[in-house]
Design a protein around this nucleic acid. Structure first.
Lengths: 337, 337
DNA sequence: TCATGAGATGAATACGTATTCATAATTCAG
DNA sequence: CTGAATTATGAATACGTATTCATCTCATGA
């Protein structure tokens, strides 16, 4: 154990504790001899200042919080989360912050993790990666004036700092591309109702069809639940239609792959009879047969922007656009050519 | 902003700050009326104690540190990391701890992240997920008497708390299984030299061969670097041998898949002419053609044990076995049948 | 020579909590 | 009814740092 503090260093250096603090913080106005003497003692005893005391005194902890409010399975399956963490971690480190990660506590505890982290002053700000963001908890953060950045979308966008993919634009681009390739009955498989990612992608799909003067056929729009099974089920329904689709855009790679397998099982030729496109560009997309086209999301960029925006807020710098959009990249592979 | 503290609550409740503290900490010896009065004020003003002050005063931060000392690419590619975090997160939460994640800082900063976190008292203990653990930094942690748990292996095992897979046993089991299936020239593709995971798995492979009375053929043992390319390269060399292998165990799924693709490109029949087995049981294993056999690692368990052991140390409980081994599970798929 | 100011340093204080110590109020045994 | 034991509470202190305020020294200029 240490038991070492500035007072001890001060004694050993024959100066006051205040001077030790000044030396350590590179404060001006300390005699060169004294500075050297103190530093010598500090080094000799390998003294390290106590971060707890610093954060109590300094009113900042130097720690950012990341709240991941998703089901464990989702966190594990999806690389989104790990890439996000790595990205945030890198940028935190570069700017001298630490990162505290938490998931929402179960209902048992009254206090939200947001409060637990922010209101107790454990962290200086929060990055929220929530599945559904429209939430009373967020209102409380706004009311409290706490610095936070939302990854995703939020109804009142000008109030809240947020970072998001250009889901709408990306889905639109994918749809347009499929139209270019001559596909005419393009279907869409979303996630559960209310998930904004799914809604936005559906919106982009609609936009593209409307812009092309094509009807939006409601029977070609279905909901899954981000699982392979749900994709397969939906595809079977699609295949049973009098006029089955000649292309499927899925909200998710897993859904896309489920649908694709179902199509293969029905001996439907991919991509000749039907094309498939997923979202996320998961590692396994290129291993599939045929390789699955997918929309690659720049998660590293997402994390970078979120971190930067949050730190800007914390350090009272102007946060330029309150909402930042990171463009996606459509990776075309054999499944949609 | 809050600006709320126990003194203010005390004033409003017409008691002393000490009493407020006692009420909040469910201390005995406080009059029921007073308790109710204080609690009413606390709730009315939605007061939350300041964690910074608590940790300064209480000599504990209630936060664990997780240090991930690996290349960003590795963290992103491999699900190991994200699963580990999720697991640790869950068990931290259950026991009332928070989790601070950090990567090793670049060399620029003199101070190790270990020191940065532990010595500054930012966290109460550390979980180290390092690629090569044998390190002077660890010695310093031991000397300092800091609580920490190593994920992986360490030379002086009785001194250090560690959690690990049974890499040796698992590799041995895989090899034996392949022998059972009639494979006789089994090759092994490892990672870069010095990575203990790779060394342990190689050891298990050797053990199995020796136990079966078979020679360990050095030309069937090669090093990759956890990448597909390296797997492919090694396989091409293997294929060019006078007597090519009839099975390949790779240290890693990526390596295995690279090798498998190379074999396919050479029109070698899988698994008839050559079998493949990887490690990690990545999501994409089952999507591959043929589906890749792989050793599934119970990362959730790993995280649980590490967290439990660390918290036991921190709370001065006896830590039963200093080293815990989590068994792996061989998932056989078409690639090795 | 003295007043002025700059420069260096120590003393004191605040950050917000938990805990010890002292004290007042109450109870109990005799 | 008194002294001792118990209980409830407030005052004081410590955790370790950063910063303000006061003090002291020394040089400079008139």
């Amino acid at each position: 154990m240490d038991g070492l503090n500035q007072r001890k260093i001060a004694e050993l250096s024959q100066v006051s504790q205040a001077t030790v603090s000044r030396v350590l913080n590179a404060d001006s106005g300390v005699n060169e001899d004294v500075r050297r003497r103190v530093l010598a003692v500090v080094q000799a005893h390998d003294y390290v200042p106590n971060a707890r005391a610093q954060s109590l005194r300094g009113q900042r902890s130097g720690t950012l919080g990341l709240v991941v409010n998703r089901a464990p399975e989702e966190l594990i399956q999806n690389t989104f989360f790990s890439v996000l963490i790595v990205s945030i971690l890198q940028h935190c480190g570069a700017k001298g912050y630490h990162l505290c990660v938490d998931t929402e506590r179960p209902l048992e505890s009254k206090r939200t993790i947001h409060e637990e982290l922010l209101r107790t002053r454990r962290v200086d700000g929060l990055i929220l990666a929530e599945s559904q963001a429209s939430d009373a908890r967020i209102e409380r953060l706004i009311d409290g004036g706490f610095p936070f950045v939302l990854i995703g979308r939020y109804p009142s966008e000008n109030t809240v700092c947020s970072v998001d993919n250009d889901n709408i634009a990306a889905a639109r681009r994918v749809t347009e591309k499929l139209l270019e390739h001559g596909r005419r009955r393009i279907a869409f498989i979303g996630g559960p109702a209310g998930i904004y990612v799914s809604e936005d992608r559906l919106l982009g799909y609609r936009h593209a069809l409307e812009a092309a003067g094509l009807p939006v056929v409601e029977e070609l729009i279905a909901n899954g639940d981000f699982s392979e099974e749900s994709g397969a089920l939906v595809l079977q329904k699609f295949a049973a239609l009098p006029e089955p689709p000649d292309a499927v855009i899925a909200v998710d790679d897993a859904t896309a792959i489920g649908a694709m397998r179902a199509a293969r099982d029905l001996h439907i030729d991919i991509p000749k009879q039907i094309a498939f496109v997923g979202f996320n560009d998961s590692v396994f997309c290129r291993y599939f047969d045929p390789p699955l086209s997918s929309v690659s999301i720049d998660i590293m960029k997402l994390g970078e922007m979120a971190t930067t925006m949050l730190i800007d807020q914390i350090e009272h710098r102007e946060v330029h656009p309150r909402r930042c959009i990171v463009p996606c990249n459509f990776i075309e592979r054999a499944s949609s050519l």
